[in-house]
Design a protein around this nucleic acid. Structure first.
Lengths: 355, 355
DNA sequence: CTGAAAGCGCTTACAG
DNA sequence: CTGAAAGCGCTTACAG
């Protein structure tokens, strides 16, 4: 095994057969005698023959490749799960020997151009789109291009295309109810810009649960900030500066929750004691935060595998609208969800009033 | 813009020109009249023409794609920087419109087969290999296949191929010297299995610095464990169970350091007070650990970009041996490196002897 | 059961 | 400056 890859022509000559015959033998055509099929396969193995994919794909008219658009990130802490998602996708694709193409774009405009390019140039037979906006132009584009795709997340109008999502509304209802069960009544929400549908879904869940439990709907308790730990910290500081600060807060991501905890600690308060915090994502790292973060956990590797399977099925002709999968997040209790207590509440107010 | 991608043939017919002429116009051949070149380009834009890449690449005899082998991971916390590395690689490749193919493998044997397959099938023109073993069979394989590659890290014999690495030996000398400067004298090492060259390099640095400072070379102070937070925790527990436990520890990764801190805290000790801890990687997340982790930081996005640039240069014909780049890690002080103090030392011994 | 023909959609000498 | 020819390495009807 070495040097130039060996072509079908060379292999055929070596076997004293014709190129098409060898091709059919390798591809298990029924009309090839078992004897020669074996002979061909053996020789192919010995010579280390591998079909040239560019040629094969040109002939077949398919790229046997799917694309993944990496979410752009502001904060370097933001994407710990990309590796897991890619691994899951890879597993799904490898069953059929498809390739995974990863692209990233600097801006939304770049991204649109990028999509158009890789689709129209036949580089991919399908695309995975992450973290959609409420009204995401990429979805419209993919539909125009008539290229199969699957979305990790949902848009506002989630009909007519394939997606895999975790129910953020449900998760935040669960989180708020859990805090209410711990006797909290001033519960705040730290969110991300509402252009992202996931941010809206989670806010909806928060609001539904607040109303259902008959709690104050104080607009000051809803803080929207940059989707990063710094954003979480800033938002939490705003909340703690309120005349009547919250005793508990739910955050749209673990990363934002880490920032929120930093703000809480910096005032001499203890997450889970004076102020409860619940994150979202279930990052393994949350075990090591100070203190370990209670969170709504979602399984990322599973997401990758499902996304890959769905996309392949659609490429095979399935109706995209039939592939919509909603997972539920699970409350993962660690150390930042504590019971409300009046003493702590006083401490908070005290600090705010007299310092 | 919609439906079937439009071919050169259709575009040529539309323009009343022949296919080769249109091709040359699009590729800026000098022997095409400026007038028709413009006319062709305009039409191409209007019709949304994109050259079919499978055809183009078959004709050109190049895949214009490089491959990245995802490191396999035991622990889900282990790969927070894959996304950053991919982003850096993507940036380097996008300058020339090359694609990035990502693969993963279940086992080392699978990985070898995988490499052989994607290289011989012409799917990639080059490969990025991560986290090499001391004597890594993948490197030999790539050389046999005569396929350009670049290694993220180094093997034992690092000659003759291209690599980008951070100097682990130097980093651990720096870390140990820093602790010595804080008056520590019993300094432990928590490492990963020595089959990985990076694990060996970092151990070497540790040993060099221990000797250079004339400290005890107590073999019990060197703990090799699984490359994960759990591994770090187990190793730290072994160290704390020693008759004379260390007052400081250097860890080969931030993840292992997080585990070590968990072990320290679980005994009622404080990282950075009773036991100092220095990690390696500079994960942003370390800001949020308990307490914030002091670490030897390396720049990951930069690594991706450099790796991509080097590989492209080699594919263009550069001598691989000329592309070897060694970065230095920087000490990033947060809160886990504290001065040695006798009182703390007593506390540790006390706990161990009487409980 | 195997061979001879045609085509996938490009690019690149080679003519004129 | 543009056209007619050949080829990249496969696959798939179509003959025999």
């Amino acid at each position: 095994m070495s040097d130039k890859p060996i072509s079908l022509k060379v292999l055929a000559a070596h076997l004293d057969l014709t190129v098409p015959t060898v091709s059919r033998a390798l591809n298990n055509y029924a009309d090839i005698s078992p004897a020669t099929r074996e002979r061909v396969k053996r020789a192919a193995d010995e010579l280390g023959y591998r079909a040239n994919q560019n040629a094969r794909r040109l002939s077949l008219g398919t790229s046997e490749t799917i694309g993944y658009l990496m979410p752009r990130f502001r904060s370097s802490i933001a994407q710990p799960f990309v590796a897991q998602l890619l691994q899951g996708l890879g597993e799904a694709l490898s069953k059929r020997n498809w390739d995974l193409l990863v692209t990233h774009a600097e801006s939304s405009k770049d991204e649109m151009a990028q999509i158009e390019r890789i689709v129209r140039s036949g580089r991919v037979g399908g695309l995975v789109i992450s973290r959609p906006l409420k009204n995401d132009p990429r979805i419209r584009l993919m539909q125009d291009l008539k290229c199969p795709f699957v979305v990790h997340g949902r848009t506002g109008a989630s009909e007519g295309y394939a997606w895999y999502d975790v129910d953020g509304e449900d998760a935040f209802i669960t989180a708020v109810n859990h805090l209410v069960g711990l006797a909290h009544s001033r519960i705040a929400f730290i969110g991300a810009p509402l252009q992202y549908q996931f941010a809206q879904d989670r806010l909806n869940g928060y609001q539904i649960a607040i109303n259902a439990n008959g709690l104050d709907v104080d607009p000051d308790l809803t803080q929207i900030a940059d989707f990063s730990d710094d954003g979480g910290e800033i938002a939490m500081n705003m909340l703690l500066d309120l005349p009547q600060p919250p005793t508990a807060v739910v955050c749209v991501s673990d990363t934002m929750a880490f920032g929120a905890m930093a703000a809480i600690r910096s005032r001499g308060l203890r997450p889970g004691v004076e102020v409860s915090v619940i994150g979202y994502d279930g990052l393994k790292f949350g075990i090591h935060s100070n203190p370990p973060l209670t969170t709504m956990a979602q399984p990322q590797a599973h997401a990758g595998r499902r996304l890959g399977d769905m996309l392949l099925a659609i490429i095979d002709g399935d109706d995209p609208a039939k592939h919509q999968e909603l997972q539920r997040a699970q409350l993962l209790r660690r150390k930042t969800d504590g019971p409300f207590n009046a003493a702590a509440q006083t401490t908070v107010s005290f600090r705010e009033e007299y310092t």
